[in-house]
Nucleic acid binder design. Structure first.
Lengths: 158, 158
DNA sequence: CATGAACATTTCAAGCTTGAAATAAAAAAT
DNA sequence: ATTTTTTATTTCAAGCTTGAAATGTTCATG
């Protein structure tokens, strides 16, 4: 409330922005989920975990994965359990720390992820195909400061 | 693949855009979830359903709600079940169509939603508070065409 | 009317997600 | 050496979400 009438005139605009951000994001996300399911027999959470692992040649600890993906520890436990059962990932003990595990992709996991990642990349290109370089750049330029603003808030809230 | 080297030079940029869109959206969404839970003892899905109902004085059918929120029918069944159990919403039969129900907010539901909605609005204002009119407008102008592009794709895919 | 197609909703199993409590191990402090 | 505290992970219950199958109802057409 910043004026005499009791309304911040930007409040409604912020709300509108949030709704549109959410809508565009979930339209894309839902489409990716559907395709990942139908065409790869996989899911977005599994893909995200595998993507994180693929970028960490030496493997990642459970806690590193959950921090990177900003999800709970218990969540990662379940997803890695599944990947392990399917032979796509493996937990290897950390010498000198019996609490921790390093999670790595198996060869089979690396192969599968490589497939899924190409498909994923192609889908994004298809879904966002009508955006030209200027559109993309314009949005990224707006999103970057928004993200660092949000991350700063999160850090402060701890 | 649109050039001799086998790479569309925009592919990587589109991927970057998607990751940033997703990240900003989920940072905000997670924060709203946490607050809705802690400060209102509620959840985002419940809030979304109640928000839809609050805008429909005559009530909405199950199918209308699920179409509006772009989630499955079965999902709405479960959420409305809960709202009904808690006395916040009610299913009323549609005269002349025994298959359908009109879902409405009870008085108690309207009161609760009104509370939650004010809190929600204030949180958005707080979370996005550092964005000025120009930032907001600039983003909305980019998001609007993106959304209609995505919606057109969805329609075509049916 | 009869009956097959279309429609509104529910049920269900499987998977994701969270926050909190439990385990277990390592590190720090006394 | 023995607490105490911190750290790494798992377990668990509760809730969300989906897609597919099931139910029951209405509509259209012969």
């Amino acid at each position: 409330m910043r004026d005499a009438s009791g309304h911040d005139p930007l409040t409604q605009e912020r709300l509108r922005l949030w709704l549109k951000l959410m809508k565009s994001s979930s339209l894309i996300e839902d489409e990716l989920r559907r395709r990942l399911r139908r065409e790869c027999g996989s899911t977005l959470p599994r893909f995200d975990v595998m993507a994180a692992l693929a970028q960490a040649p030496g493997g990642m600890r459970m806690g590193e994965i959950s921090k990177r993906l900003r999800v709970s520890n218990g969540n990662i436990t379940g997803i890695v359990d599944k990947l392990e059962t399917e032979g796509l990932a493996a937990r290897v003990p950390v010498p000198g720390d019996r609490r921790a595990n390093l999670v790595t992709l198996t060869d089979e996991g690396r192969t599968a992820f490589s497939d899924h990642a190409s498909a994923h990349e192609a889908w994004i290109s298809e879904i966002l195909g009508q955006l030209n370089a200027d559109d993309i750049d314009g949005m990224i330029r707006r999103l970057d400061p928004l993200i660092s603003m949000l991350e700063t808030q999160n850090k402060t809230a701890d």
